[in-house]
Design a binder for these strands. Structure first.
Lengths: 185, 185, 185, 185
DNA sequence: CATGAATGAGTTTTCATTCAT
DNA sequence: CATGAATGAAAACTCATTCAT
């Protein structure tokens, strides 16, 4: 693994464990087994390291979601696919999930960062479709995406605490109904 | 105002503006117009200051909600009252709201802190009722409370960005329908 | 017990446990069950508290030693009596002993403080006698007192670590022989 | 000189002048002409700085003593050599001596630290020999080492106050007789 | 005498970032 | 690219002492 990757991997773990305010860059470098200085070669500031990590995670979620969608799906099926992809991915990447929550509630996060994500764009298109077709309640589409996102997050936290339910797909489809009912007309 | 109150008031403002990681205790004292040392007389550590602030906010929300509920309300009306009380209070206290979000996504926050709040208890009782009466979907009540809470938060953020909608009670009741539909059977 | 006595008693204990650099005046007051401010009524500065404590201890050793000496004793008997009195007293007052060692090795301690003690005076007179009578090696009497003192201290530390020897008077008289041999011609 | 050495040298001086409780780490760095932060790069805590300094001094005494001992010496000659080496070294390094006294009477000091010193080991071997051969009084060897050490310390203090005696080897050999008489049978 | 809130300078330690090698 | 020593401005927290009540 390249030093850059090593650093990101280590940062992900440490940030999840202690938060990024609680994780010195020096510790990231040390645990990654590289020198202190090289971190700033790849990530000129700590903020850039943090943001890069976030972007990387969001890209990976997007890529995963892309493998799950399929043609010919109904709107509900598509929304479900994205919802499930996001839930599953977060369940399988608890460190990324922890970090993501922190980041999205930190001063680093703003609407520009939010909109720049392809995963958000993907959702936005589907939601707009649903609103246009009067299948969904009539609200600002970005707001609806945020509603879905917050429900996904609460759901993932819930499943993380109840590991026995993690593979229960019938349960998960009931969880999805909460989200679906919230947004559908 | 007592120095203790002065400190809390100042902390609330500064924490909202720059986050509590971004706000030195020395600045809190300075802006409150008191000495550096007295802060630690009232709040032995920064963590205690932060937690005290959070507890205080939650107590105030609870007290406000208490003034809003009334006897003879249906379950839906009761849920709506609590939902609206929370939304309104947060809209009127944007600094507290900002701070609350940060706190709840920080390492300081855990289930003990969550359950200790009377506001959560209040919600929990109503939700349990709804589940027992098979009005609500059958889920862990604390999970349902969290779903409602996250919807409130997303809603408040949305209204904060769209000040023109803040006094539109018809719009707000449509927003509530999202929450209600999510949890009702 | 008067507050003044309460403070001294508590200071003695805390200073022995954590050293006087490691013991805040506020803690002394708190553990003594009195207010912070009153400490400075009785002891205007921390240094005065520390010194007072030391003087008090030395006075008590002197008073105890006075009860032990008797008329008609030989020089060796007198020296032994003082040596033993000091050893016994320190063994029975381990907190005072600990504190004393710290104080005598701190910047607070100097020759003026040393000479002002009646216990030192008492020893000095005997030693001068022994030197005049050519029973002792010819050295500066104050130096000889210090030699005896340091041997007492090392001896007390030794007995404190070997509690089984504490009541063995034959052993203690053998310990005294070290001191005696050191100074006698 | 390396920054590490610069820091130790400066610490030695300042600690001797004002005690280590009375010397801020910031002052050590400042007077050493290095940055505040680098001190903690070499010595992660003040305690480590203090202990390192002590170990270093004891190592240097040991090394010096090693150059003084010679084969074919009698037991008394060997003890004298060590005693004198220690006295001379301390006389020539008054700052180290001052610091050493403070350290040995501080909470940092304990039996582990004491036993870990090669200089103590060296003495211990000789003393054990003397006890086995019934040349010395029969006591715990470590106790005897401590007796010798305390006599060395008292002696050095005495000579420091009487500079005119510092080069008087006849006087010093008389001083040694005190120590020798104390321990010999 | 007694309280304990209040002061504010001082202390150790941290840490993002730089830079000579 | 890579190292890790070096910087220095914070940061949280401490504590002897004062003083209004």
């Amino acid at each position: 693994m390249s030093k850059r990757e090593l650093l990101m991997k280590t940062a992900r773990r440490l940030f999840a464990e202690n938060g990024f305010y609680g994780t010195p860059t020096a510790l990231v470098a040390k645990e990654a087994g590289v020198s202190n200085g090289i971190l700033f070669h790849y990530f000129p500031t700590k903020e850039i390291l943090v943001s890069s990590l976030y972007q990387d995670i969001k890209d990976r979620i997007f890529n995963y979601a892309m493998t799950q969608i399929y043609n010919g799906a109904t709107l509900k099926e598509s929304i479900y696919t994205l919802w499930l992809a996001s839930v599953e991915w977060n369940l399988e990447h608890p460190e990324d999930f922890e970090f993501m929550l922190q980041f999205e509630n930190s001063p680093y996060y703003n609407e520009d960062v939010e909109r720049s994500q392809r995963y958000v764009q993907m959702n936005l298109e589907l939601i707009e479709q649903g609103i246009d077709q009067a299948v969904f309640k009539h609200f600002n589409p970005l707001f609806v995406v945020r509603i879905l996102t917050s429900l996904v997050e609460t759901t993932v936290k819930h499943l993380n605490k109840n590991q026995n339910l993690i593979d229960d797909f019938e349960y998960k489809s009931r969880l999805f109904e909460m989200a679906w009912d919230a947004i559908k007309k």
